Deep mutational scan, measured.
Amino acid sequence: EEAIQNFKALLSDMVRSSDVSWSDTRRTLRKDHRWESGSLLEREEKEKLFNEHIEALTK
């Protein structure tokens, strides 16, 4: 649960536009030290959280 919250915070800070792809964003996020705290999450979970974040940005 904490890993999810940390990853959501990372997305909020780093992803402000809804027209970015997961693969491009992932490359950028990996450069942030907080990426490692999400290592407990599966890749699919990270992508799902990313997609939810993008959906929220479009509303």
Rank of each mutant, 00 (worst) to 15 (best):
E1Y: 00
E1R: 06
A3N: 10
A3K: 07
I4V: 10
Q5C: 10
Q5M: 12
Q5L: 09
Q5I: 09
N6C: 06
N6Q: 13
F7C: 03
K8W: 00
K8Y: 01
A9V: 03
L10H: 05
L10G: 05
L11F: 00
L11E: 06
L11V: 03
L11T: 03
L11G: 06
S12D: 11
D13Q: 08
D13G: 01
M14Q: 11
M14G: 05
M14V: 12
V15G: 00
V15R: 00
V15A: 01
R16T: 15
R16C: 09
S17F: 03
S17N: 12
D19G: 07
D19K: 11
D19H: 08
V20L: 09
V20E: 08
S21M: 05
W22E: 09
S23N: 13
T25K: 05
T25C: 14
R26H: 11
R27K: 14
T28A: 14
L29Y: 01
R30Y: 09
K31I: 04
K31V: 05
K31A: 11
D32Y: 00
H33K: 14
H33C: 00
H33D: 04
R34D: 06
R34S: 02
R34K: 03
R34E: 03
R34M: 04
W35A: 05
W35K: 05
S37N: 13
S37E: 13
G38R: 07
G38I: 12
G38W: 05
S39P: 11
L40F: 05
L40K: 13
L41I: 12
L41P: 10
E42V: 10
E42D: 15
E42C: 15
K46W: 07
K46D: 01
K48L: 08
K48T: 08
L49Y: 04
L49S: 02
F50N: 02
N51H: 09
N51A: 09
E52D: 11
E52M: 08
I54P: 05
E55Q: 13
A56S: 13
L57D: 05
L57S: 08
T58Q: 11
K59E: 06
K59H: 15
K59T: 12
